[in-house]
Write a protein that binds this DNA or RNA. Structure first.
Lengths: 130, 130
DNA sequence: TCACTACGATTACAGGTGTAAACGGATTCG
DNA sequence: CGAATCCGTTTACACCTGTAATCGTAGTGA
């Protein structure tokens, strides 16, 4: 085996992410039509578009198909956690030279942090420090 | 006036960002050659490539040109702070539904936060709470 | 003045992305 | 059995990106 299923090499685009999100959300394998209903509707995508995205995700080894009679059921091959972690790190690296504290400072300064964000973070910090 | 110079509508790509970075870094207007020296070298880009990126940035209203004899001096039209803020928010929105605390939790869990990150954040929190 | 050089502008071109329509085989309804 | 339907696959196509090469024009050195 040359490729690692757990982390697809190719990048996942924004539109593709939306599709993945639907699968993560569902928690169980979905048909293309079902995915389209969940994503397409809010995004205004046609079924055809969703199908294309699903195919591309399969090609990128990001989701798997399992036959269900005549059609396929799609399910994620990568964990949401992993994806988020990966993307977050990418951003921190790209914009802040890897310094997470800088990102935080930025969000804080830009007032992108609500009062409840602050409380939550405070709590998290305490736990981390325990 | 229909367009706001302070925030270019079009997206800035990664390569373009690198060029902007050089201009921000310099703190003063630079010639194309100078930019190429600063970015191109570390990235292995030819002068031609850097020129293209500069042109695209001009087209996107992200940098300005001022004539200096026969050439141009390029300088950023958008502030680094603004760019970072914008991109950070984009990520938080895209990946965490706008919840900055979730991003933070993720970084923490992924152990992407060093001890000094934690200290810094703690300090920042205290200030914000004052 | 004339070849040469330095520069911005124009053109190029492959690969990724957003957004679909068309195609072809299986299935089901009448 | 034939038409309509469902579904994955193939093809389309414009725009963005990375990465240049080439063109045209304005100076420069001989």
């Amino acid at each position: 085996m040359t490729d690692n299923a757990a982390h697809p090499n190719e990048r996942i685009s924004e539109a593709e992410q939306a599709v993945l999100e639907a699968l993560w959300d569902a928690g169980e394998p979905l048909t293309a039509a079902s995915v389209a209903q969940r994503v397409g509707e809010s995004r205004g995508w046609s079924l055809a578009t969703v199908k294309t995205l699903l195919s591309r995700l399969v090609g990128k080894n990001a989701i798997a198909t399992q036959p269900d009679g005549r059609r396929f059921l799609y399910s994620p091959l990568i964990a949401r956690e992993d994806f988020l972690g990966h993307e977050s790190r990418r951003l921190v690296d790209r914009l802040f030279g890897g310094r997470a504290a800088s990102l935080f400072a930025h969000l804080a300064e830009a007032e992108a942090l609500t009062e409840s964000d602050l409380s939550e973070i405070e709590t998290l910090l305490k736990e981390l420090r325990k």
